[in-house]
Design a binder for these strands. Structure first.
Lengths: 109, 109
DNA sequence: TTACTATATGAGTATATACTCATATAGTAT
DNA sequence: ATACTATATGAGTATATACTCATATAGTAA
């Protein structure tokens, strides 16, 4: 792959990673894994202001993580691709490794 | 799982996602998948200032993505857990989906 | 010792992000 | 029409991040 293309790829991937690199946004993704939801229900679930939630949702739409459609007054958001959930598996692997290491260090004291 | 624990988990996961949510840092991770490297070689590979690379490396160490050891004058960095590479698979899935959608939209014109 | 190399970090600046409040828009219901 | 609801967004502020340059530290080599 040419270098410029690689740069572009890294940029897009970084944008996706950054889009889920916030506790509230991860919580939203986790909530949406069970099905699409409107803004106000998301806001209630995660306990944040609607305007703030709306912005977080925009960030994820811009990065291509979510998509949305209108239904009456409401706007319904859903995961654009379930493959984003793979991320959680990846994270569990990392955190388990970190936990293993911590307990190893503890045992050495 | 209790809510407070979930919050903490989301926070940790977000930190990891954010740690790889930057083009240069993704490029570093990609470079390190083939084996550990010292700061100056990483800096040369990705074409950035050493001090800047050093900071990016610190961010990833703090998030638990990388670990390092000293060898003489050099500091060698490596992936803490190969599971971080799963992230790239996850990303490819997302980007392929986005590409499919773009071409579908194009065909509808 | 001095000179050199690799890395880390303080300080400063520029930019980006997160958040809140107020307001605008769009649809619903009367 | 008015009143209401859901969502988005402009403006302001606070905080975080990325970057650069200069300097400090630690190890190597003469």
């Amino acid at each position: 792959m040419p270098d410029s293309k690689k740069q572009l790829l890294f940029q897009k991937q970084a944008r996706i990673a950054q889009a889920i690199g916030h506790p509230l946004r991860l919580e939203i993704v986790d909530f949406l894994k069970d099905g699409e939801q409107c803004v106000c229900d998301i806001a209630e679930q995660i306990g944040a202001e609607r305007s703030n939630v709306s912005r977080h949702l925009s960030v994820m739409v811009a990065a291509g993580v979510l998509e949305h459609r209108k239904e009456g007054l409401k706007v319904i958001y859903r995961l654009k691709c379930p493959c984003i959930l793979e991320f959680f598996k990846c994270m569990s692997g990392m955190l388990k490794q970190q936990a293993r290491e911590s307990s190893r260090l503890l045992n050495e004291l």
